[in-house]
Amino acid sequence: MMQVNPGPIAAAGIATASSRAADAPMTGTPPPMLSPTTYGLAPAQGREVFLASDARRVSAVSRWRKRLSWPLGIYTTPVAILITWQVLAEAGLLSPTAAPAPTVIARTGWQLWQQGVLGPDLEISLVHRAALGLLLGLGAGIVTGVIGGLLRSGENLFNGIVQILNTIPILAILPVMIVWFGIDELPKVLIIAFGAFVPMYLNLFAAIRSVDQRLVEMARTTGAGRWRLVTRVMFPGALPGFLVGLRFSLAFSILGLVAAETLNANSGIGFLITNGQTYMQPDQVWLGLVIYAILGLLADQFVRLLQRVLLRWRPGYEAA
């Protein structure tokens, strides 16, 4: 859950034998094991040596290695793939209809933007559909999740139905939505809301129920009232689970957006894709896919940021 960025730690840990040998004389009085004249610079078998981070010998090689390994954190791999893709496309190894070069896709995006096509489509997809659906789904998920988590009667009321909903794939309810609500905006918003609602309810419910009962007991003995118990103990205790739910909700609502827009749309990003498909414009299809991908990435980064800010108190958290 916490962002794992092995960059600096891994790089700092790797100090080659040669670099140690070169730097050893400069570091005060090294223990005999590490003296430059000794061949075996590694500590004796079965022993480990830990050094203060600034006492670690930093050679030019390890400095460069540090800079070169994972320079972009988790984005290193995607960027590497993009670059490879671009090179292969320019070398003519990829057919432009199957996989147009990233720069071509970007240019298409820019052109569509300038023509005033992309902007309104983005607005419809993001604001009128995704944001509205998310607001509905998260709102419903949070309200029912809190009621279900705090009250036994709330659990009885909501749990069964959400468990049933949870087993229905989001794509499977799309036809029902169309039968019920036609092909307007409403079914699209509802699909997105559905995608956000189910994981938020389930995670929030589980999170509230699994708040450490010993802390709840403790709070009771201090004479804290019900309101304080909920706001100071239950909600903060459920926060990690809530954020997991939020992450799933965002991911599923994007899935719902894609599903709803692909099956029927006369505007929005999905329309951009079907349109590109109809008129044989692969750049436009790819542009739509890239926008969806960026949405997913942004959602994920948003939750990571929230985690970093809100979960500072956790023992696992490392101050940046």
Binding site: R214, M218, A219, R232, V233, P236, G237, L239, W313, R314
Partner: peptide
Amino acid sequence: QGDRLLPWQ
């Protein structure tokens, strides 16, 4: 038995 402090406060 054990401090039972709220870790988030």
